[in-house]
Design a protein around this nucleic acid. Structure first.
Lengths: 197, 197
DNA sequence: GACGACATGTAATTTGTTACATGATTGC
DNA sequence: GCAATCATGTAACAAATTACATGTCGTC
């Protein structure tokens, strides 16, 4: 249940309207926590009702009119508490890996094309991340002041590097997978031994 | 919507009862597609009603009695079609990364402990995977016959290596993250620049 | 016959997805 | 006034999570 905390974080970084949040969840925030505008509006409603955020004056009448939110002390407290919480890493759930495992059973027809497609997507994402890194986190382009990077800068850079490392891992793995399957013709494959893994 | 296909794959590899499937989803299958027993029973019901699998004779009366399923031709056809489908990689959604980003805003209190905990978990998972690799996929211990690995073996090995690469990536990233945050005292952190990333 | 392990299931809730509905503002 | 865009929202559904309920079987 992290969506409300993602929104609180985003709003603390900068007060925003629902649509602005939606856009930020397509870039920055969305790189590690994705959400659609429907989820965001629903959650904004809840957070407002529970007194964790409030709409800035100016716009009341709702529909069609922009409505900006800011975080209240209760919201900041909620987020602070959540940050020091514990939560195990979620088990992996990856359709592409499942497809490969299924392909081992019913035949790998068309798989190489899909691998190539994913490779291109991950390469593009990697390039986007490294561009951001070059822009925001290299010596001289530091977001921070003359004292070098702050603790906050270092944390944000670490998060970005997780994204970079992940994309790099997929690019390398997909390249290797293509080397091994791309050339071979799709074989029907024999029934497996005991589970194999 | 991959759960039914995960189940079809598992049942093709070996006919099983609901509980057996649940156990296999805690190992092998679960390494790339996790599911709880409630999900599995519900989905088994649907697959049976839609004529994709059927219960082996022997056990009818239901509750408490073991019930084994096998895949029918319609099920195999469904899976074969699904394997050649296309699906974009899902955007990342990682609570730990979100926590770090939030920590950059409200302070990184207690974060290093959580990083150490995750590091230990990922190291254990990595060890489990490399054990399996050594057991099932090294020369001499090959699952396959004397002709060397089959296409199916190669695919299963690739899936396992994705797991290994992923865990290794996290182990390395978490080690680096600890080097950078573990020593520093938790700082309150200044308000961010424009989104930063 | 009571207990624990095995086994199958129901119910309620929350979260995420997809499709659609409606109002406001701006430029032509 | 009309179309395009910005902006907020509703509704219906699908999937996942959590908690609980029930039945069978072996064994002590």
């Amino acid at each position: 249940m992290s969506l409300p905390h993602a929104i609180l974080t985003a709003l603390l970084e900068r007060p925003s309207s629902g649509l602005e949040l939606t856009r930020r969840f397509d870039r920055s925030i969305g790189y590690f926590w994705s959400a659609t505008h429907q989820q965001i509006y629903r959650e904004l409603g809840r957070l407002e009702r529970s007194g964790r955020i409030r709409a800035l004056e100016s716009a009341r009448p709702a529909r069609g009119r922009k409505k900006e939110y800011e975080v209240l002390p209760a919201g900041r407290a909620e987020l602070t508490g959540w940050v020091s919480g514990r939560e195990d890493p979620k088990p992996v759930r990856d359709p592409l890996l499942l497809r490969m495992r299924a392909a081992a059973v019913v035949g790998a027809d068309g798989l190489p094309d899909e691998l190539r497609r994913h490779l291109a997507l991950h390469e593009r994402q990697l390039a986007e991340y490294t561009d951001i890194e070059a822009r925001d986190f290299t010596r001289g382009a530091e977001v921070s002041g003359p004292d070098g990077p702050t603790e906050a800068d270092r944390l944000r850079h670490l998060v970005l590097r997780a994204g970079i490392d992940l994309e790099r891992m997929w690019v390398e793995w997909l390249s290797e997978a293509l080397r091994e399957t791309g050339t071979a013709t799709a074989a029907p494959a024999a029934p497996a031994g005991p589970d194999g893994v």
